[in-house]
Design a protein around this nucleic acid. Structure first.
Lengths: 120, 120
DNA sequence: CCATTGTCTCAATAAGTCTTGAGATATTGA
DNA sequence: TCAATATCTCAAGACTTATTGAGACAATGG
């Protein structure tokens, strides 16, 4: 994750519909959801609108897609999301662990670190 | 940190100059830096341009300002940054710790969690 | 092969954002 | 008080982004 990629990701996440799509897909799991189902979850958004936002998210690398019959299935790109978090926290840690320690503390109970894999 | 605040924060961070300002202020520490110094660090940006971007960041809650003599000193709003990270990770953790575990793992060595304070 | 379903593409319009330059405001020192 | 310094405000223009509607493309079932 470099600056340009982070900028794209932040831009993608700064739009209400797209932020909701990402949250929906993250909770939907690795199998993902078809575009139509996502559109209905967004309050019946038009297909062109969904296509636009899903395309933006895919270009930003935050979601991936595959065709399954007539449907196109979208799923969250977990490594990209993790990478964005790492990018943010890496910045925060530049001499000032007090920034991200609260976040790490709050979440280490739900997402405990695994030993021997750290290399930020 | 709610959705609206996260959207504002992501929008603020999706602009190159502003992302760099935040990174600069995070590394600058709690004392912060005067607007003029930040502007020079941004390659000699005009004062109105700096004022615009710093205002955006302040409105998004990512930085705070105080006047000191003729200068206005800006500093990173560490709790807001931490809150944004928590917001992202909270989403990621909804049934899928594999998303944020890598980030937590990578950073827990630099920003170790403190026991008994977790409440995400 | 045709109709149907699901999604994408394209062009037009509306809405929002960034930069610039001129000038206003606040603070300090002479 | 005057000049200098540091920053902010405002309006104009260029640029980018979001939405809409019409229609195209792909896949399936009859």
């Amino acid at each position: 994750m470099n600056e340009a990629q982070a900028l794209d990701a932040f831009a993608a996440l700064s739009q209400e519909t797209r932020l909701r799509i990402v949250r929906l897909l993250v909770t939907a799991g690795p199998e993902g959801l078809p575009a139509g189902v996502i559109g209905e979850a967004m309050g019946g958004a038009s297909s062109s609108r969904m296509s636009f936002h899903l395309g933006q998210l895919e270009q930003a690398g935050l979601v991936a897609s595959r065709r399954d019959g007539r449907s196109v299935i979208y799923n969250a790109a977990y490594p990209a999301l993790s990478g964005l978090i790492e990018f943010l926290m890496r910045d925060c840690c530049q001499g000032h662990p007090e920034v991200c320690t609260p976040a790490v503390t709050a979440l280490s109970s739900c997402c405990p670190p695994t030993k021997g894999t750290a290399n930020a």
